[in-house]
């Protein structure tokens, strides 16, 4: 047992390397604690709320990336879902259950269309989902009339009528467990666990890794490529819809402009965790590390009131450092 061997066993594990990155970010937080703010529980509780929407998007993104693809449409589909859910519940007064189902199905449908275009027409995922990104944003703007869907409803005569915030919004925007955990964080946890079950406990998951690893081999092995891809992108769309509902509930409105560039954050979270963009490898647990690394980084910069210029530069640097940590040669 040489030390080199142990290096391989311990440091060879992506989870250990992601954990080290997270630890490093933690140390930075403890050093720059901003008058003790970093050491308060509330800071961490709020952080877990902030990252929830991004985290839910990264769950779907993980599935798609493992399949060897990418989903650029997550931010737009999320905005569409936020607008639709607000329209259904605030303006139309639909029952929460029906509004939820309609919104989630729309999200899933958007993803399935992307998946269909990717698998049937063999269009590159980058292009197919970019098309969906633009298209879904257009639909979100169309159905909302370019305005935020809020509790101020404009009547045909131009006068605003004010309605109450739907109860579903209050429930999602609240905290549970003695005010210690945001509801949206719980939803993120449910999404993570669902992904974990799908990826490591079902044949669907094994097929997904197979497709990402070697698509041709997977095809020869009899894995239904089209169906797998449609379901993977469809699930990503479904998670987008969940994220959109959470976003709308936290803003108390459906904003058609929300989620611009969120796809970049979601991709960064997945990749920094250690899931390769080449596909076929990675786990949802790694993505959780990625979500926490980026989330904590932002939070530390925010509580220290670091200026925007420095923030962007530091974020860029730290992403590179975290990616270096993930290299096999370390």
């Amino acid at each position: 047992m040489t030390s080199g061997h142990w290096n391989k066993v311990i440091l060879g594990r992506p989870a250990v390397r992601a954990g080290m990155s997270l630890l490093l970010v933690f140390v930075v937080g403890i050093v720059f604690h901003a008058d003790g703010t970093f050491l308060k529980w509330e800071t961490h509780r709020d952080l877990l709320r902030q990252i929830s929407v991004y985290g839910i998007l990264s769950c779907g993104m993980t599935l798609v990336i493992i399949s060897g693809g990418i989903d650029l449409s997550v931010g737009s589909v999320m905005a569409l879902a936020a607008v639709l859910f607000s329209l259904f519940t605030i303006h139309q007064g639909w029952p929460t259950g029906i509004a939820l189902i309609a919104t989630v199905l729309t999200g899933a449908l958007c993803g399935m269309i992307s998946g269909g275009v990717v698998s049937r027409f063999k269009i590159q995922p980058f292009i197919a989902t970019m098309a969906m990104m633009v298209f879904a944003r257009g639909v979100a703007k169309l159905v909302s009339g370019g305005q935020k869907i809020s509790t101020a409803i404009q009547q045909p005569d131009g006068i605003y009528q004010y309605v109450e915030v739907p109860r579903s919004f209050d429930v999602l925007n609240a905290r549970i467990l003695g005010d210690n955990l945001a509801t949206v964080t719980l939803i993120l946890a449910v999404c993570v666990v669902s992904c974990w079950i799908l990826l490591s406990r079902t044949s669907w998951g094994r097929h997904l890794y197979a497709i990402g690893g070697n698509e041709e081999a997977a095809w020869y092995a009899g894995i239904p490529l089209t169906r797998m891809k449609i379901s993977a992108y469809g699930l990503s769309g479904l998670f987008c819809a969940v994220a959109g509902i959470c976003q709308a509930a936290q803003e108390l409105q459906g904003d058609p402009e929300v989620g611009v560039a969120y796809e970049l954050s979601a991709i960064a979270m997945v990749v920094i965790g250690g899931t390769s963009l080449r596909g076929g490898t990675g786990t949802i647990g790694l993505t959780v590390f990625g979500i926490l690394i980026i989330g904590y980084l932002e939070k530390i910069l925010s509580i220290n009131a670091v200026g925007e210029e420095i923030r962007l530069m530091l974020t860029g640097l730290i992403i590179v450092v975290a990616a270096l940590f993930q290299m096999k040669r370390m």
Binding site: Q50, V258, E298, S302
Partner: peptide, 15 residues
């Protein structure tokens, strides 16, 4: 942006 404002305000409140 509203989501950013909420994030920053949370930091201010915590501090």
């Amino acid at each position: 942006l509203e989501p950013n404002a909420r994030k920053e305000m949370e930091s201010a409140l915590a501090r």
